[in-house]
């Protein structure tokens, strides 16, 4: 018989800025940010693929850093600024990456798509004109099982061009 550890389940009030809105939510110490976003706050656009940091489906931006939200505790979001797929385009229009994913048919089942778009948006902030190799290296933490990555890489390159047309075009 396995001993059951006694764990505190007392909830903490967490105040964070999520997608530009100040949000307060209750988090148990053992709940991940992914679980809090999905089950407590109700932002289910962030997906669970593995819950152990290996697939990138739960990528969000926290305080300017791309994170796997399954590896961050909900209580760590206290005072933080968090951007999820739902807030990737504050204007309400589609983000160029979202447009490019649609035009390039860069999704099939779509479960990895929010993570890829959040991750790629951080790439394009750091590097407005990435090469194919740079796109592939950056996105190596995001797993997709449907597309073979070809059209995803093309969509990111296309979005970069939409956002910052290069002089040669």
């Amino acid at each position: 018989m396995v001993a059951v550890e006694s764990r505190s389940t007392a909830k903490t009030v967490v105040t964070a800025t999520i997608n530009g809105d100040e949000v307060q939510f209750l988090a148990e110490p053992r709940q991940t940010l992914l679980e809090c976003l999905r089950d407590v706050v109700g932002l289910t656009g962030t997906k669970e693929g593995c819950s152990d940091g290996n697939c990138g489906a739960c990528n969000v931006v926290m305080n300017g850093h791309l994170v796997n939200s399954c590896l961050v505790l909900g209580v760590e979001a206290e005072g933080a600024t968090v951007t999820t797929i739902e807030g990737i385009s504050p204007s309400g229009e589609l983000h160029p990456l979202q447009k490019a994913f649609l035009e390039e048919a860069a999704l099939q089942c779509g479960i990895c798509t929010p993570g890829f778009i959040v991750s790629a948006s951080e790439l394009l902030k750091a590097n407005a004109h990435p090469t194919e190799d740079q796109v592939r290296f950056w996105l190596a933490g995001n797993l997709c099982r449907c597309t073979g990555y070809d059209k995803i890489v093309r969509a990111v390159l296309h979005a970069a061009e939409m956002m910052h047309p290069s002089a040669s075009h």
Partner: peptide, 16 residues
């Protein structure tokens, strides 16, 4: 497509 690139599409795990 739009539902899937914006995170609005409801997958099995998103059922509430």
């Amino acid at each position: 497509g739009v539902d899937k690139v914006t995170g609005r599409a409801v997958y099995g795990g998103d059922t509430r």
